[in-house]
Design a protein around this nucleic acid. Sequence first.
RNA 1: CAAGUAGAUUGCCUUAUCGAUUCUAAAUUUAUUUAGGGUAGGAAAGUCCGAACACCAUAGUGCAAUCAUAGUGGUUAACAGCCAUCCGCCGAAAGGUGAGGAAAAGUGCAACAGAAAGUAUGUACAGGUAAUGCUGUAGUGAAACCAGGUAAACUCUAUGUGGUGCAAUGUCAUGUAUACCAACGCUUGAGGGCUGCACGCUCGAUUGUUGGAGGGUGGGCAGCUAAAGUUUGCUAGUAAUAGUAAACGUAGAUAAAUGAUAAGGGUAGAUUGAAUUUGUAUUGGGAGAAAUCUUAAAAUAAAUUCAAGAUAUACAGAAUUCGGCUUAUAGAUCUACUUGACUA
Length: 125
Amino acid sequence: MNFSYSKKDKLKSKKDIEQLFTEGKAVTAFPLKLIYLKTNFEDGSTLKTGVSVSKRLHKTAVSRNRIKRLLREAYRLNKPLYFNNSSASYTFMILYLSKEVTTFDKLNTNMKSLFEKFIAKTSQT
RNA sequence: CAAGUAGAUUGCCUUAUCGAUUCUAAAUUUAUUUAGGGUAGGAAAGUCCGAACACCAUAGUGCAAUCAUAGUGGUUAACAGCCAUCCGCCGAAAGGUGAGGAAAAGUGCAACAGAAAGUAUGUACAGGUAAUGCUGUAGUGAAACCAGGUAAACUCUAUGUGGUGCAAUGUCAUGUAUACCAACGCUUGAGGGCUGCACGCUCGAUUGUUGGAGGGUGGGCAGCUAAAGUUUGCUAGUAAUAGUAAACGUAGAUAAAUGAUAAGGGUAGAUUGAAUUUGUAUUGGGAGAAAUCUUAAAAUAAAUUCAAGAUAUACAGAAUUCGGCUUAUAGAUCUACUUGACUA
């Protein structure tokens, strides 16, 4: 696995998203929240990930876009460090909960702590 | 040079690394790789007007209702836009601004003052009558009765107006239900449609209305970006705009691409330092009877130049497409004009 984040790795199907929100479990590491669900994909990809920022917290489209881009970037760069060896396949949805507009450095460290928490939790059960 | 008025342009750049999306070409392993190219705005925003386009409805007549527009002329595919101009108001001017049709068709409203702002008639004086605010004058007020104001009140006049919006719509795949239960109705017309009403027309048992219970879809492709197109020149016109020639070929995502990081630079810049010029008052020297003039020193204020420089670098993200309007916007640049001052 490499640093790429192409169309195949994105969570796009409405069905999958609805299923994720109704059946999925959550891990929070403020200001990020990860909702995950174990799924098998027909096209052979292991992870499908979406990113979301609430319209209530960030009113202008510019700031929402900015945060989503940072989230995608942080996910893209950290993904191979944590999930390269895992064989299980998941759908992810990463939510941004804070009202502040962050920088990339902060978000990067947040993302790392989020994934550590997630791995700790899944390896326990 | 100062103060102002109107309008136009621009809306940070470069390099490196890692990515996203789309187009073209090649290769094969047919969904991947390689190479090359494109990839957000002046408002993409608000969704306020006007259209294109699509579907639905539509034999028709009359009346009503709703909404919009409102000096005059022009312009445009169209408009509530734009241009020109008349009139009113504001400004010293350049300019700005106007919801600028109708008040003798009717209804309503009118601060203060006043008895009363119209189913009213008080006070004083005068006149008059069988009798009475019956008549006149005074007083209040912008206005006191066959009068006026107000239509950013109803209203009237003229003109126009079918509805829904790309989540339209078509198509492929999956699925399929005119299923099931209850009540009412069935050619002697239940019930529906034609914008609200009336007339009139029309569909109508091959399955109506109401309620219950239950199932499915929400995925792909097309629509989708070449267009009332952009830039420049010339011609016509006061102008909006029109005609013509040349060049250009300009995002297409769908839980939402157009980015992230690092380094360097640009622009603005509170402030600090240095230099120069000018002004101010002080002190010392010189000239002079004095007023004053001149020169030097350090101080202070302003302007210009150079250097350093914290910090700032806006508003804002396409979603079918155009024409407008409205609102947001750090900083920079340019043009025309008005008034005032100074110099030649």
